[in-house]
Design a protein around this nucleic acid. Sequence first.
RNA 1: GCAGAAAUGGUGGAAUGGUAGACACGACAGACUUAAAAUCUGUUGAGGCGGAAGCCUCGUGCGGGUUCAAGUCCCGCUUUCUGUACCA
Length: 921
Amino acid sequence: MEYNHKDIEARWQQFWKDSQVYRAEIDKSRPKFYVLDMFPYPSGAGLHVGHPLGYIASDIFARYKRQKGFNVLHPMGYDAYGLPAEQYAIQTGQHPEVTTRANIARYREQLDKIGFCYDWSREVRTCDPGYYKWTQWAFMQMFNSWYDRSQNKARPISELEAHLAARGTEGLNAAQSKELHITAAEWNAMPEKERRQALMNWRIAYQGNSVVNWCPKLGTVLANDEVSEGVSVRGGYPVEQRQMTQWLLRVSAYAQRLLDGLETLEWTDSLKETQRNWIGRSEGAEMRFKVKDSDLELEIFTTRADTVFGVTFMVLAPESKYVQQLTTPEQREAVEAYLEQVRHKTERERQIEKKVSGVFTGAYAINPLSGKEIPVWVSDYVLAGYGTGAIMAVPAHDSRDYAFARHFNLPVVPLIEGADVSEECFEAKEGIICNSEGPTLNLNGLTVKEGIARTKQFIEEARLGKVKVNYRLRDAIFSRQRYWGEPFPVYYKDEVPYLMDESALPLELPEVPSYLPTESGEPPLGRAQGWHTPDGFPIELCTMPGFAGSSAYYLRYMDPHNNDALVGREANDYWQDVDLYIGGTEHATGHLIYSRFWNKFLFDLGLVCRDEPYRRLVNQGMIQGRSNFVYRIKDTNTFVSRGLKDQHDVTPIHVDVNIVSNDRLDLEAFRAWRPEYKDAEFILEDGEYLCGYAVEKMSKSMFNVVNPDDIVERYGADTLRLYEMFLGPLEQSKPWDTNGIDGVSRFLKKLWNYAEKALADDPQRPATPEELKAVHKLIKKVSADVENFSFNTSVAAFMVALGELTATKKASRHALELFVRVLAPFAPHISEELWHQLGHEGSVVDAEWPSWNEDYLKESVVKYPVSFNGKVRFTIEQPADAPREVVQEAALSNPAAAKWLDGKEPRKIIVVPGKIVNVVV
RNA sequence: GCAGAAAUGGUGGAAUGGUAGACACGACAGACUUAAAAUCUGUUGAGGCGGAAGCCUCGUGCGGGUUCAAGUCCCGCUUUCUGUACCA
């Protein structure tokens, strides 16, 4: 019988479905193992061959763990809220839910064909009311919580109110938007509205007026991780800075814990490093500069406290509140003009130009250490959102300050001995300090490091400021002026936000007649009929961002049908956390930060049992496309083969990779591809047309998209799975090239032939030593490889082992059975088929993972024999703990060594303490 | 600029400090076939010696170093990819 993948795969996929073998239930008699894929956003284009890479890897691991005796949870779902569906809805008027549903159906169909062992009974969709009820619920908990820095955890807002009523802000150590001083008496006298406004200063989900990334084209604000190089990640539209009232999550309160938690995780160093950079911890000092002839003080943050004597001017961010307060009447016109100019620049323009610009406010500050007067300027190179929005400028030792000083002709005072600042600044944080003596402090002669410590100490003693740790990580902007997202369970009374009652959850997304903003510029929900509470109070018009739904989905999989809790206690206690998480690095600064934050918050409230959600994380690489080109001779319809193209003036044109095989163009298919190529002429080499190629992103416009359905149809799911793993290391980016797939396809056919022989063998005949050696070597190799995610070498090991087995000319059922057990995670369909042909009931997913026996693997001890210049040199492995003489004696008396010694005395013996003896004969 | 990863045949890629190039593709040659496809066998890093079995030299981006032994470890470069950036 021929190997018929279609027949085998259809049959066993049906069997798995009918017998529900992948269903996971709590079973306290077995250890749990939770394998999770980052769930996909179901786009309209469907899956291409690059998408399943990570899913195949996690599927292999999940099956392997199950065979090792673990109770495996391996779920899948959809991140269903998102911009593309909404944009499509705006264009077509079709409800995003309709397109999302259709896309999900298509995804499911494609996924099913590959034979994954997902427990689909646990599927979640972020746009399901039964799911987003818990997203809304989590938001409510955050609204009702504040972060206590003393206890380092989130606490109920009622406890904060009690504190304020009893002692005001005294003794309060909380994460907050700004420093407030309120006495108990003041608090108790406050009307309800004012109290609620004040509490926003501490809530973990709070409303704040801050500078945000506004994308006019998308008509919404965006979080920092949704903006890259000044344009939106989705769509690539320009983004500008705007001051707006928004919902935010106080992620910054968790900055230190998010940093510390990384130490406990088995993630790659590069990913941890990316998160560390994003969190951006910097230690420094916050200090105040008095403003001349004024009661005002400017607060700044610096990491270089040692350079205060070199501060020759100060700079405010254009958005800083100090700007209005400080600007003198003479300078007001110039400052206003500058602010206007800055406002009109988009973020992208600001970044690309990098032109030095700024304006003098007319005010002077006093350098607290030197006592000198220094001018205060405004410039857009200072960011409003970081630190205090004001800086002390040290032009001699900071390149931005240096450029600014040179442009506006401000003084530059070097502070490090020997530093030449006539051409450029000296940025290195080393050297001996000079020019740093004032009435109260002298730093001359100290190193930079000593200088920083000394100054920090002085600042605290002299009450000029305090030592402070700053983080780059900002609070996450949580409102989106869009339709297709979770509605906020919030209404407004007296213009102050109130939470709805929990019984109102889920607050379902209403229908709207159009998905565009309203005429008055309100979000699309402004068009919804009856979008108010029964009492007539208006409901929030913004919806939540994409990361809201994906932040706790891993918890929901543990207990997806629970209507009373996000996750039940019993389910959470059993499944605990994700043991293995697989997905792309693109989520490093978005989802993976927010999700960790969200989980830590729930942990603080005692709702989940683990502080970190994803213990081990593996990033699969991107699969790129491999595009093919034909070369058209200019102004003709003649195409010249790759090798001859330099002799002509040609234009390369992308050609569909599906009509090219091994870079050879199918001429007839090409003529039929497009009407304009119907009469194409070709200049061939050796009778063939060779196409050029390039590695590019896989996309429709490059005609290099390969669809997994086509591969499954032609070669089978097992072949697809093996080939995706065989392509190269999982973590590495690599181009897809269908050409190599014949190799694994042949392997499965050979296996099928071998199995036919083995199945016909006498069941009583024991396996030969050669067979046992081949199979046990395989088990050992694959066991180690799977643990290390080295799936490509596993696939190679299968090929080698099969080659060795066929070379023995024997084929026993015993060898086949062991082979099938280790192959099962990689190629489940053919393994299931052979497992049953071997006479087993049940599924191969429950076949025990075999162990190997070292006795079958023993080899000669003589290794690496080399001969050179008439000498022979070989190495003998010996036990590590024996003394040199013993090792040498044992090595020379070894029978295998005798062959190489050939009766002669060795000329030189090198004993390497530990394990190796080199003998030169 | 900063951070991380990487560089090995025509191609994708293997190598706990121990015979570099496993495995696969492609290519070449052969078998089967009227022929093609499929399948099978052999060769395939470069250069050289030999009738042959076989043997020698050189070879893992570049330059140094450690070691009996380096693709692997250390120092200094070059290039590529990824992330990030007026973060004071």
